[in-house]
Amino acid sequence: SEEEIREAFRVFDKDGNGYISAADLRHVMTNLGEKLTDEEVDEMIREADIDGDGQVNYEDFVQMMTA
């Protein structure tokens, strides 16, 4: 549901600035027990970053979650 997606976005957007940065993503993945290299984190950001601004905004996140 849209509310679940919004809630998930809030979990990833640690600093609440409306964007998921590589640092935000790394933090959440580490908490989930996933040890990722910087390259892996950057690749995840690139794949999710639809508009190419280097971070994942809510619209990018929705597209990723509903793809």
Rank of each mutant, 00 (worst) to 15 (best):
S1N: 07
S1L: 11
S1T: 13
S1Y: 12
S1G: 07
S1E: 05
E2P: 13
E2D: 07
E2I: 14
E2Y: 12
E2G: 07
E2L: 14
E2S: 08
E3H: 12
E3P: 04
E3G: 07
E3R: 10
E3D: 11
E3N: 11
E4V: 10
E4Q: 11
E4C: 14
E4Y: 12
E4I: 10
E4P: 03
E4R: 13
E4F: 11
I5M: 10
I5H: 02
I5P: 00
I5R: 03
I5A: 03
I5K: 02
R6M: 06
R6S: 02
R6D: 01
R6H: 03
R6T: 03
R6W: 07
E7G: 08
E7W: 06
E7M: 11
E7R: 12
E7Y: 06
A8S: 05
A8V: 04
A8L: 10
A8I: 05
A8Q: 08
F9P: 00
F9V: 01
F9W: 05
F9S: 01
F9N: 00
F9E: 00
R10V: 03
R10P: 00
R10A: 07
R10S: 05
R10H: 04
R10I: 03
V11I: 10
V11N: 07
V11T: 08
V11R: 14
V11K: 13
V11E: 05
V11Y: 07
V11D: 03
V11W: 06
F12W: 06
F12T: 01
F12Q: 02
F12K: 03
F12P: 00
F12S: 01
F12A: 03
F12M: 05
F12E: 01
F12L: 04
D13N: 01
D13V: 02
D13C: 02
D13K: 00
D13P: 00
D13F: 02
K14C: 06
K14Y: 13
K14N: 06
K14H: 13
K14V: 10
K14F: 13
D15S: 08
D15C: 07
D15K: 09
D15Y: 09
D15H: 08
G16D: 05
G16Y: 04
G16L: 07
G16M: 06
G16P: 00
G16F: 04
G16N: 09
G16S: 06
G16W: 03
G16K: 07
N17K: 09
N17W: 06
N17A: 06
N17P: 00
N17V: 05
G18Y: 02
G18V: 01
G18M: 02
G18S: 03
G18C: 02
G18H: 02
G18F: 02
Y19W: 11
Y19V: 04
Y19P: 00
Y19E: 02
Y19I: 04
Y19M: 11
Y19H: 04
I20S: 00
I20F: 01
I20A: 01
I20Y: 00
S21E: 04
S21D: 06
S21L: 09
S21V: 03
S21T: 09
A22K: 13
A22V: 15
A22Q: 09
A23D: 13
A23P: 05
A23L: 09
A23M: 11
D24W: 05
D24S: 06
D24E: 09
D24H: 08
D24C: 14
D24P: 00
L25A: 13
L25P: 00
L25C: 04
L25M: 05
L25I: 12
L25T: 02
L25Y: 02
L25K: 00
R26Q: 06
R26C: 03
R26D: 01
R26W: 07
R26G: 03
R26S: 03
H27W: 14
H27Y: 14
H27T: 13
H27Q: 13
H27G: 05
H27L: 14
H27V: 12
H27P: 02
H27C: 08
V28T: 03
V28N: 00
V28W: 03
V28K: 00
V28A: 10
M29F: 08
M29T: 02
M29K: 01
M29Q: 01
M29L: 15
M29S: 01
T30H: 13
T30W: 11
T30A: 14
T30S: 14
T30I: 11
T30M: 14
N31P: 01
N31W: 15
N31Q: 13
N31G: 09
N31S: 14
N31R: 14
N31C: 13
L32E: 01
L32W: 09
L32G: 02
L32A: 03
L32F: 10
G33R: 13
G33Q: 09
G33F: 15
G33M: 12
G33E: 04
G33V: 09
G33A: 10
G33D: 10
G33L: 13
G33W: 15
E34C: 15
E34P: 14
E34V: 15
E34T: 15
K35H: 13
K35Q: 09
K35Y: 11
K35T: 09
K35W: 13
K35D: 07
L36S: 03
L36W: 15
L36Q: 03
L36Y: 14
L36R: 09
L36V: 08
T37V: 04
T37H: 04
T37M: 05
T37W: 05
T37Q: 04
D38Y: 08
D38L: 11
D38V: 11
D38S: 11
D38C: 07
D38I: 12
E39G: 07
E39R: 12
E39N: 07
E39A: 12
E39T: 09
E40N: 04
E40Y: 07
E40I: 13
E40F: 09
E40D: 07
V41S: 02
V41F: 14
V41A: 04
V41E: 02
V41Q: 03
V41R: 04
V41T: 04
V41W: 14
V41M: 13
V41H: 04
V41C: 03
D42K: 06
D42M: 11
D42V: 07
D42T: 10
D42R: 07
D42F: 10
D42Q: 10
E43Y: 15
E43V: 12
E43F: 14
E43Q: 14
E43R: 15
E43P: 02
E43D: 10
E43L: 14
E43K: 15
M44V: 04
M44R: 05
M44E: 01
M44K: 04
M44Q: 02
M44W: 12
M44L: 10
M44D: 01
I45V: 05
I45M: 13
I45E: 01
I45A: 04
I45D: 00
I45Q: 02
I45S: 02
R46L: 06
R46Y: 06
R46C: 06
R46M: 07
R46Q: 07
E47D: 11
E47Y: 15
E47G: 15
E47T: 14
E47H: 15
E47V: 15
A48T: 06
A48V: 10
A48M: 12
A48R: 11
A48Q: 06
A48S: 08
D49Q: 14
D49H: 14
D49V: 12
D49I: 12
I50D: 04
I50H: 11
I50L: 11
I50E: 05
I50N: 07
I50C: 07
D51K: 12
D51Y: 09
D51T: 11
D51F: 10
D51N: 14
D51L: 08
D51P: 05
G52P: 13
G52S: 11
G52Y: 10
G52C: 09
D53M: 13
D53Q: 11
D53P: 03
G54N: 06
G54R: 04
G54D: 06
G54L: 04
G54P: 03
G54Y: 05
Q55N: 14
Q55W: 12
Q55D: 06
Q55H: 10
Q55E: 06
Q55T: 06
V56E: 00
V56Y: 09
V56G: 01
V56D: 00
V56F: 08
N57E: 06
N57P: 09
N57Q: 11
N57W: 15
N57M: 11
N57K: 14
Y58E: 06
Y58F: 08
Y58M: 05
Y58C: 02
Y58G: 01
Y58A: 02
E59F: 08
E59K: 06
E59M: 09
E59L: 09
E59D: 05
E59W: 08
D60N: 14
D60T: 15
D60K: 15
D60E: 12
D60V: 15
D60R: 15
D60S: 15
D60Q: 14
D60W: 15
F61Q: 00
F61M: 07
F61A: 02
F61W: 06
V62F: 07
V62L: 15
V62W: 06
V62H: 03
Q63G: 06
Q63T: 10
Q63V: 08
Q63E: 05
Q63C: 08
Q63W: 09
Q63Y: 11
Q63S: 09
Q63P: 03
Q63M: 10
Q63L: 11
M64G: 04
M64E: 03
M64Q: 07
M64R: 15
M64A: 07
M64N: 05
M64H: 10
M64T: 05
M64S: 05
M65E: 01
M65K: 02
M65V: 05
M65C: 04
M65R: 03
M65A: 03
M65F: 08
M65D: 00
T66G: 08
T66C: 09
T66D: 03
T66S: 08
T66W: 06
T66I: 13
T66M: 14
T66L: 14
T66V: 12
T66K: 11
A67M: 07
A67N: 12
A67E: 08
A67R: 14
A67I: 08
